[in-house]
Design a protein around this nucleic acid. Structure first.
Lengths: 234, 234
DNA sequence: ACAAAAGTGTTACCTCTACACCCATGA
DNA sequence: TCATGGGTGTAGAGGTAACACTTTTGT
């Protein structure tokens, strides 16, 4: 039976209890496509359907910690390798048929690492290209909000680098923008803009030949948190 | 005693129950100052201290509905008169000494209406100029996040008009920007920018003399949801 | 008449876009 | 040497900041 340790809260709160979960929109770029990590549900409701990974918050952890823990559990990845931020909270009364569940959604932008989507809960997990997905619960809406947030953030923050490995070329960074925004950008103007924006990216001194053509310089993330001037979507 | 109607959820969820509240950052401009509505707490914890208004979500309402209901309860105001949006969610384990409480914060921008901060829960309520406030719980942090969100949104959305009455002059709109951003803006350039931005504000055809000087045209909000080009903070 | 606020015109500067052009490599 | 991608230069379009100037009121 349910036992409550703090009698003081019974009077005020007993009837207002709610389940709180954290759900993750994990985005990465694989095979030149923006992809999201989904879990195939093994149990009802929505058994067999794909859903965003997530879980209940623990009693002793902050929301950000819960999101970071879920990220580690689902990908085996350290959150510092990419970017993790709170997205929004969803609490429509009917969103979970089992009862009132409020979920705090987080958005993560990750590099395409070889990690094979480690163990998780032995449930099936895989990356899916975004677009035309039908997800469980209200996860379509959460994913759409996450995509829009990601697209908007590339404009005025340096977060595009979160999709890149530690060292990358300007062309690879441009491919991130082109994939997320579904546009083409002028390589010459893009190069000038990102290399002239203060503290966005820093040259490592090395260079590589990725395909054919002249070798490209390698860069790493700079310390900037905002982009001045911003890179606007065409 | 607590009775649970849906046995299915006991196994999974009983130990993960949490209280969920909605807190409001209500901002308005009064007496040429940006002000926030605060409630004086009558009971512990933090009795006697000032806090953001808020309350528990009801079983049958969405989070947005709960925020709109709280807004009506605290101000007697219809949410459509201003602007109401979700801000962020805060769930640090120690933020409420009574137990685990996750709060979904909302941000509202309101015109300075004569409404005398109606009844609420008979608790003391009043507007305070922002800055140098020491609030209960983690409400200092929530207020700071709300202020930053409001300042940022004025740049690239037409939300400054949410602080204005239905009809307003360009000078009054400029005063909103100057108050929220704590800067001075050139009246001539400001006038040109806001009148040339598509669908930002629309002339009503009327004009008024507010103080001395030439009468000013009256405008109302236009249908734009984004500002092109944006009005950047100096 | 004069002060004060509304609103317009002008100029120098800055950023962006489009594209011509050069550079450095693999095949 | 040629194709390919990396990177620089430059001219025109358009937005911005600073400020001179005109318009329209109250006193």
């Amino acid at each position: 039976m349910l036992t409550i340790k703090r009698p003081a809260i019974i009077v005020n709160m007993t009837l207002k209890m709610t389940s709180v979960t954290v759900d993750l929109v994990l985005l990465t770029i694989r095979q030149d496509a923006l992809q999201v990590l989904l879990i195939r549900r093994g149990i009802e409701p929505f058994a067999g359907q794909w859903a965003l990974p997530g879980g209940f918050i623990h009693d002793d952890e902050d929301l950000d910690e819960a999101a970071a823990r879920e990220l580690r559990e689902e990908t085996g990845l350290d959150p510092s390798a990419g970017h993790l931020e709170q997205l929004a909270t969803y609490g429509c009364p009917g969103r979970d048929p089992r009862g009132r569940v409020v979920t705090v959604a987080y958005l993560a932008l990750l590099p395409d690492l070889p990690s094979p989507v480690a163990g998780s809960d032995a449930a099936q997990a895989r990356w899916w290209p975004v677009g035309d997905l039908r997800l469980a619960f209200d996860h379509d809406r959460i994913l759409a909000d996450g995509l829009e947030r990601a697209r908007a953030k590339l404009e005025y923050t340096p977060l595009a680098t979160a999709f890149c490995p530690a060292e990358f070329t300007v062309a690879e960074l441009r491919a991130v923008y082109e994939t997320v925004w579904r546009t083409r950008l002028d390589p010459r103007n893009f190069h000038r803009k990102v290399t002239s924006a203060e503290n966005f990216i820093e040259a490592t001194g090395h260079s590589v030949t990725r395909d054919r053509g002249r070798p490209a310089q390698l860069f790493r993330r700079g310390p900037a948190t905002l982009l001045h001037p911003p890179l606007l979507r065409p």
